[in-house]
């Protein structure tokens, strides 16, 4: 009996001691799992950043010939008379769009998951708000160009006419408001999706308990739902800040940053310098400063929001 047990135990142990299994055991398996992601990050983030960093120290132009020029591009940046306006535009654009993205996204999520009791109505409504995100950017931008058309055929102007008001040239008179709305409308769906999922994962008993304890619907939102959405709120805020800092495609398509740089943001300015006027070196320097600003903001936000505790919570 005992011998039989020992033999079986040996049979289990045996394969673990061959040279092959010993090699396998020493093989750093965890790196194998990390490798794909590491490759992605290196190829698509670190390599471009380093190339960009190098580029920023050169005077490369359309001819693609280049020489190292030291800090010349950065000096030029500091002396560029447009930079204060670009920086101010960026600040206004990012903070206003961010507010729309977070607050309106939260509003939509609460509306469709908490206040609308019928599951399928909420779902239909949320899907509707996802449409702009599913539409190719060019098509979405075209829609806005039509809506803000300065003639009486633009949608907004048609509405004005219905009230007997003269047509407005939206994009030239309110370029900043236009790009904030364009990005806010498409960006709100991101927050909406994250917040909806988070609200749906709140145990329904918390909400029932609050109601029995005397909370109105708004009280439930204020005292139970919002505190439990703390982490999703922080995540969406950080994420959206960073992606807004780097985004310019809708602005490029709708107002081109104009008129007269009034809706031109940092990343768009870098794009223009590099690809429109062919000053690759200078464009790279502008982009480098933006990357530095973004990294500082990201670190600050994670610090303020207690990223480490967030990670602990997930464990």
């Amino acid at each position: 009996m005992r011998a039989a047990v020992e033999q079986r135990a040996r049979a289990y142990r045996a394969p673990l001691n061959t040279p092959r299994t010993r090699l396998l055991r020493r093989f750093p398996t965890h790196w194998l799992f990390l490798l794909p992601m590491l490759l992605l990050v290196v190829v698509f983030f670190f390599v471009p950043v380093i190339l960009n960093l190098i580029l920023a120290f050169t005077d490369m132009t359309l001819s693609l010939r280049w020489e190292f020029v030291g800090l010349k591009n950065y000096v030029k940046f500091l002396q560029d008379p447009l930079i204060p306006q670009i920086a101010k535009n960026t600040l206004v654009y990012v903070s206003a769009t961010l507010s729309i993205n977070v607050i309106f996204g939260l509003f939509l999520a609460l509306l469709t998951t908490y206040f609308v009791k019928r599951e399928n109505v909420g779902l239909a409504f949320r899907s509707l708000w996802l449409l702009p995100r599913m539409t190719p950017p060019v098509v979405y931008a075209l829609l806005w160009i039509w809506m803000t058309d300065p003639t009486e055929y633009g949608l907004l102007n048609m509405m004005l006419q219905a009230f007997g008001l003269p047509p407005l040239s939206w994009r030239t008179e309110y370029p900043m408001a236009t790009i904030i709305l364009v990005n806010g409308m498409v960006g709100a769906s991101f927050g909406m999706i994250i917040f909806s999922a988070a609200i749906k994962s709140i145990p329904v008993d918390y909400i029932r308990a609050a109601k029995v304890d005397g909370a109105s619907d708004l009280g439930v939102v204020r005292w139970v739902i919002l505190p439990l959405l703390k982490w999703p709120l922080m995540f969406v805020t950080t994420w959206q800040t960073l992606s807004l800092l780097a985004s310019y495609e809708y602005i490029l398509l709708v107002t081109q940053g104009g008129p007269n740089h009034r809706s031109e943001v940092w990343s768009l300015y870098a794009y223009y310098k590099a690809f429109a006027s062919g000053q690759y070196g200078y464009g790279a320097a502008i982009a480098m400063v933006l990357v530095a600003v973004a990294v500082i903001i990201a670190l600050l936000m994670l610090r303020i929001f207690g990223f480490r505790r967030l990670m602990e919570l997930m464990r």
């Binding site: 029932r208 308990a209 304890d213 005397g214 005292w223 139970v224 505190p227």
Partner: peptide, 30 residues
């Protein structure tokens, strides 16, 4: 909220973001 019932849930449903004191005080604060 106007029925004046006290309900203890099968899951207890204590609010995780509040201390025990705040949990108990919640109906009174409201």
């Amino acid at each position: 909220k106007d029925r004046y019932v006290g309900l203890v849930f099968q899951s207890y449903a204590l609010y995780p973001h509040m201390s025990v004191f705040d949990n108990i005080a919640f109906p009174l604060r409201l």
